[in-house]
Every structure is written in C-alpha cells, then in structure tokens.
C-alpha cells in the first residue's frame, strides 16, 4: 500500500524553539484532509515542512511512495493570501498560467494550448470574466479562486492549501469546497490547513488534529469528538475557565 502521505518522526524547530514534535501519520490516497488545531499549533508549519519548504530537524516524509523531490511537479501549493504581493503586475489569466510552468521545465514557454487550458481552469472556478484583471483588483474570495485555478492548471496529484477560507465570501468558499471534493472524487489527495472548527466535520474526510504534537489522526467521525478535540484546545479552555473565575 502506498500512501498519499507518510510521515515518520517529524521534528521541526524555529531558532531552537520547538514547533512540531514527533509527528507520525499515514494518509491514504483520494482523501480530503483537514489539518486543524488551535492558533500556534503549527498547522502551516506542518504543511510547509511536509513539502520541505522549511527545514526539518529530523524525520522522513514520503509522498506516493517517493521522496518529495521526485514528486514536486505533481504537488500544487496554494499559499496563504496574506503572504502574497497583490500589487504585482500580473493578470488573472497569467497567474493561472503559472500552474503550467512545472510541466514546462526551464526553457520551454507556455503555448496557446497552455493558455486555453488555463482559461478552462478559470472557468471551473467561475472566474473567466475576470481573466484580464490585475489580481489586486479582485476580492479576497475571488483571489483564492484564482489560486485554486492555478493549482488545477498544474494537473497535480497532491493539493496543499494553507488557510484558503480566511476572510473570503460564502460563494467563493462553497465553490472551493465543491472543487476540492471533485478533486477527491477523481482520486486526488487534498490537504487543507483549516482553523474554523464549525465546518471541519462537513468539509473533510480525514482530520489531522495538531497542537505542536499530533493529538489524533483519522476519519472525521473518529477525530471530531468533543473528548478528543478538548485535548488540542485544552490550554485555551483552561485560560477561559481562569478568566471566568477572576471575572
């Protein structure tokens, strides 16, 4: 059995401060996976270290039975919206076209068929009318849909999205969730860093519950239970209790 993602003994630290401690999990292919946990739990850090975008102290990550470097072109990454420079002189369609770069290699340039494919991906997210706009002229939800279109254009097997639902409108959120589920149904593997617990049980198949260490991993029905969720959010809850006492 080759897993979509197999992680063993993963340790990550920032300047000597422990960010992730001994993470182990296996996720099968064709799952929509939510990475959840309280603020500062290391959710984005986990996603970035899985893709070796930040160095890890120890541990192995295997993607579809191979090392990450062998699989890179088949991995689409959608960054947090706050990490982007929205004044960059690039149009919506050219942003989506970036998704075709990994398959092109260094010297080849995107051709007409790549442009058509990018436009098609824009249609999938319902953003084709905005293809000539500069990306900063869009709303947050529209921007997120464009970046999802870029990920689609990459024809990846593994999709990684960092907090895609932060600060976006409900239509965009529904569109994105629908497309992620379609991808899952096509057998793709999707990992989403997510902070809003209220919808976690309807969006995802599998959950990775995190608070610096792995609290639990498994199907939503098993992980999304009060007694397990409490373990991750314990520190925040005790804080609330203390506050009540003093008030």
């Amino acid at each position: 059995m080759t897993y979509a993602m197999s992680v063993q003994n993963l340790f990550v630290s920032y300047h000597g401060n422990e960010a992730l401690r001994n993470i182990n999990f296996n996720i099968e292919k064709g799952n929509l996976v939510g990475i959840i946990g309280p603020n500062g739990a290391g959710k984005s850090t986990l996603l970035k270290s899985l893709l070796e975008l930040i160095p890890k102290d120890q541990g192995t990550v295997v993607v579809f039975g191979k090392s990450i470097n062998e699989m890179r072109k088949k991995i689409a990454y959608v960054p947090q919206r706050s990490d982007m420079d929205w004044t960059f002189p690039i149009s919506v369609i050219d942003t989506v076209l970036l998704g075709t770069y990994p398959s092109l290699g260094v010297f080849r340039r995107p051709k007409k068929k790549h442009r058509e494919w990018s436009y098609h991906c824009l249609e999938k997210v319902g953003m084709e009318k905005f293809s000539q706009r500069q990306i900063g002229e869009l709303s947050g939800g529209q921007q997120q849909r464009v970046f999802l279109a870029r990920a689609l254009a990459q024809k990846a097997d593994l999709f990684c999205l960092d907090e895609p639902f932060v600060g976006i409108d409900i239509t965009s959120e529904e569109t994105i969730v629908r497309i992620l589920k379609e991808l899952r149904d096509e057998g793709k593997s999707v990992f989403v860093v997510h902070h809003d617990l209220s919808k976690a049980n309807t969006y995802f198949d599998e959950l990775i519950l995190l608070n610096k260490e792995l609290i639990d991993v498994g199907p939503v029905s098993e992980v999304f239970r009060p007694e397990i969720m409490m373990k991750a959010y314990e520190s925040q809850l005790t804080f609330m209790k203390q506050n009540e006492v003093t008030v």
Partner: peptide
C-alpha cells in the same frame, strides 16, 4: 529565464514547492 524570474518574484513559495 523569464518564467523562472517571474514566478520566483511573484510567488517564491510556489516556485520552491515545485522545485
């Protein structure tokens, strides 16, 4: 290297992610 300069200037995380 226009492509590479463009993508690494606009979205360095993506360019790192795809290698």
């Amino acid at each position: 290297f226009y492509k590479e300069l463009l993508v690494s200037s606009f979205d360095p995380t993506m360019s790192a992610a795809y290698g």
